[in-house]
């Protein structure tokens, strides 16, 4: 065995390297944020929020993309939210210890990490081709499929933290299961469930690949869900890859908007959860 001095030196060296790695990770986050701020902030004028996309060289903004994103995320959450919360509740309550529950938990874990682009392809063959075109509906449903596993996972985890005694006390008073779940368990785990919903919104806001094959994008203002619909990530993709400088800077403005939104949602959900515990 090496001498004590040598072992201590190794220990110090590994500690220094590990601390360096942690600093490096913080540096990467800072670097990405700095890139977004330095390139996105100068391009972030009022026009971004008030004007729709225009041909290159004519200014324009991202209004149609912002509105499209909000609509599609809203519908995705309206569909995926209840399904996710119910499925998470099933896994924590009725499905516990059953084969169906174990299988659903396994499948949900797979869906949580499965490539999101495949969800886009799936909705493309399931809805876009048979219905004859890209649509806001298809984009919303693709996003709904992506938010479900996030909500299921957090809901189940949070319900598992609720003491069994709380449920038993309610059952002992003669409450039916729907009342126990809705007024006791959900209420006790409220902060955690809301956290899951916020994280799901953050995920839906940044997803690009699944929208390529579903809502496609739209350079005009459209709130018609049966037509192709613009979205912020798709607009960024389209503009960032274009050769026009004003489009590229608009892409940076959009990138800054999305990232700030997503990071704020993430930090807020964590603070929310920490405060309620």
């Amino acid at each position: 065995m090496a001498s004590l001095a040598a072992r201590r030196a190794t220990d110090r060296a590994v500690k220094a390297i590990s601390t360096g790695f942690a600093v490096f990770a913080l540096f990467l986050l800072g670097w990405i944020l700095w890139t977004l701020l330095s390139r996105g902030l100068p391009a972030l004028g009022l026009n971004v929020f008030t004007q729709v996309t225009k041909p290159p060289g004519q200014g324009g903004g991202l209004l149609n993309a912002i509105v499209g994103s909000l609509i599609q995320i809203g519908i995705a959450m309206a569909i995926g939210g209840p399904i996710g919360i119910f499925c998470g509740t099933f896994l924590a309550e009725n499905g516990k210890g059953t084969k169906v529950g174990a299988a659903a938990r396994f499948v949900n874990d797979i869906l949580l990490s499965a490539p999101s682009i495949l969800v886009g392809l799936f909705i493309y063959t399931l809805l876009v081709v048979p219905l004859g075109g890209f649509s806001g509906w298809a984009g919303s449903i693709a996003l709904a499929i992506l938010v479900i596993p996030v909500i299921v996972r957090t809901t189940e985890d949070m319900l598992n933290l609720v003491p069994v005694g709380l449920r038993e006390a309610a059952f002992a008073l003669g409450a039916p299961q729907w009342k126990v779940v809705m007024f006791i368990t959900w209420r006790a785990a409220r902060a955690g469930i809301v956290t899951g919903v916020l994280l799901a919104i953050a995920r839906a806001a940044g997803e690009t690949a699944p929208l390529l094959f579903t809502s496609l994008g739209n350079n005009a203002m459209s709130t018609d869900l049966s037509k192709p619909m613009a979205s912020l990530p798709i607009a960024i993709y389209q503009f960032a890859g274009s050769p026009f400088d004003d489009w590229v800077s608009l892409a940076w403005a959009g990138a800054l908007l999305i990232t700030v939104g997503v990071l704020v949602l993430n930090v807020a959900s964590r603070l929310f959860l920490a405060r309620s515990h």
Binding site: L29, T208, A209, I236, L263
Partner: peptide, 20 residues
């Protein structure tokens, strides 16, 4: 939390940062 935030940054943002 800061390390976890790297996971929250959307894929397309990594793409732009990477490319430019």
């Amino acid at each position: 939390v800061a390390v976890q935030l790297l996971a929250a940054v959307p894929s397309i943002i990594y793409g732009m940062w990477g490319f430019f």
